[in-house]
Simulated scan of single mutants.
Amino acid sequence: MRALFPGSFDPVTQGHQDILRRAALLFDEVVVCVMFNSNKTGRFPVTERLDRLRAAATDLSNVTVDSHTGGLLVDYCSRVGIDVVIRGVRGVSDLDYEMPMARMNHELAGVETLFIAADPALAHISSTLVTAVSQQDLL
Rank of each mutant, 00 (worst) to 15 (best):
R2T: 03
F5W: 14
P6Y: 11
S8V: 12
S8L: 06
S8G: 14
F9A: 06
T13D: 03
Q14M: 11
Q14S: 14
H16S: 14
Q17G: 03
R21G: 02
R22M: 06
A23P: 06
A23C: 01
A23G: 07
A24P: 07
L25N: 15
L26I: 14
D28T: 00
V30M: 06
V30Y: 08
V30D: 02
V31A: 09
V34D: 07
N39C: 12
T41G: 12
T41I: 12
T41M: 14
G42E: 07
G42V: 00
G42W: 02
R43G: 13
V46Y: 01
E48Y: 11
R49Y: 09
L50G: 08
R52F: 12
R52N: 14
R52L: 15
R54K: 14
A56Q: 05
S61Q: 13
S61D: 15
S61R: 15
N62G: 08
V63K: 13
T64C: 11
V65D: 12
V65Q: 12
D66P: 15
H68M: 15
T69F: 10
G70C: 09
L72R: 08
L72C: 12
L72T: 01
L73V: 15
L73F: 13
Y76T: 11
C77N: 11
S78V: 06
R79C: 05
R79N: 13
G81T: 12
G81M: 08
I82L: 05
D83V: 08
V84F: 07
V85Q: 03
I86P: 00
R87C: 07
G88D: 03
V89N: 01
R90M: 03
R90G: 04
R90N: 08
V92D: 10
S93W: 01
D94Y: 06
L95C: 06
Y97L: 02
Y97G: 02
M99T: 10
M99D: 02
R103M: 15
M104G: 04
N105V: 14
N105M: 05
E107N: 11
L108R: 07
V111D: 00
A118V: 14
A118S: 14
A118L: 09
D119H: 09
L122G: 00
L122I: 07
A123Q: 05
H124S: 02
H124W: 12
I125P: 01
S126H: 01
S126Q: 11
S126R: 02
T131M: 03
T131E: 05
T131Q: 10
A132I: 09
A132Q: 14
V133N: 08
Q135I: 09
Q135A: 15
Q135V: 13
Q135T: 09
L138K: 05
